[in-house]
């Protein structure tokens, strides 16, 4: 464990807590893409298949449980909760899951470190996580106005993967034979997808104006 990875995990944890607090306290999910939340639940479900077979550390297991519980409860809130679901904008959140899931699955079948079910599922979860934010970014473009909590949520989500890149660089130089091209490339693609959002987020923060994405 290194400071970059710990900071990354804490930032990731903060992003799901910000989102859960938003939905739980103001009982609204306006501006949040259910498609992205469902994709994230799938990412964690396919990535943490080894939660009961491979014990890494107490920290690792607890964080996996938190991410699984939070992502599935956010999906539950947005689909089932009688008040929250009313604020879900399903006419705007129209991104088709399959357009992301199928290519990631096919890619994972061809590009993986080992052709085993667990490893292919793990690689699939990496590719899917890289693109899972797309429905959310599309929704933000459409609805244009971004409330603070949603902006913070997307920002933290992007920042966590950027911190992970620093973690991979650190591990590459400190651990012999630590090479995971698949992880590094998908993590880089993921961070780049947030780049334009970061640009507008920092500008709005610097000029102290409401965050607006161009049409």
């Amino acid at each position: 464990m290194n400071i970059f990875r710990l900071a990354g995990d804490m930032t990731h944890l903060m992003s799901v807590i910000v989102l859960l607090l938003k939905i739980h306290t103001i009982k609204s999910c306006a501006g949040i893409s259910l498609k992205t939340q469902e994709l994230y639940a799938l990412v964690f479900a396919t990535r943490y298949l080894d939660i009961f077979t491979d014990f890494i550390s107490l920290y690792n297991t607890i964080m996996k449980l938190i991410f699984l519980a939070s992502s599935f409860s956010i999906v539950w809130y947005m689909r089932q909760h009688k008040i929250v679901r009313r604020s879900y904008d399903k006419d705007q959140d129209t991104f088709r899951h399959l357009f992301l899931i199928l290519p990631c699955l096919l890619l994972a079948l061809f590009i993986n470190e080992k052709f085993t079910f667990k490893e292919v599922m793990w690689t699939f979860s990496l590719f899917l996580e890289a693109v899972a934010i797309l429905p959310q970014l599309v929704l933000l473009q459409r609805t244009r106005n971004i409330d603070n909590l949603t902006g913070q949520y997307v920002f933290l989500l992007g920042a966590y993967r950027a911190l992970y890149i620093l973690n991979w660089i650190y591990r590459y130089f400190t651990e012999p034979h630590y090479v995971h091209w698949i992880t590094w490339i998908s993590g880089l693609v993921q961070t780049l997808l947030y780049a334009d959002f970061f640009y507008y987020y920092f500008n709005s923060w610097k000029n102290n104006v409401k965050l607006q994405l161009p049409a």
Binding site: R5, D9, H12, D50, D54, I56, N60, M63, K64, F67, K114, T116, K118, E119, W122, Y164, N167, T183
Partner: peptide, 10 residues
């Protein structure tokens, strides 16, 4: 045959 090393990152 290296035993499948579990992924230690979240």
């Amino acid at each position: 045959e290296d035993k499948e090393k579990p992924h230690d990152e979240l």
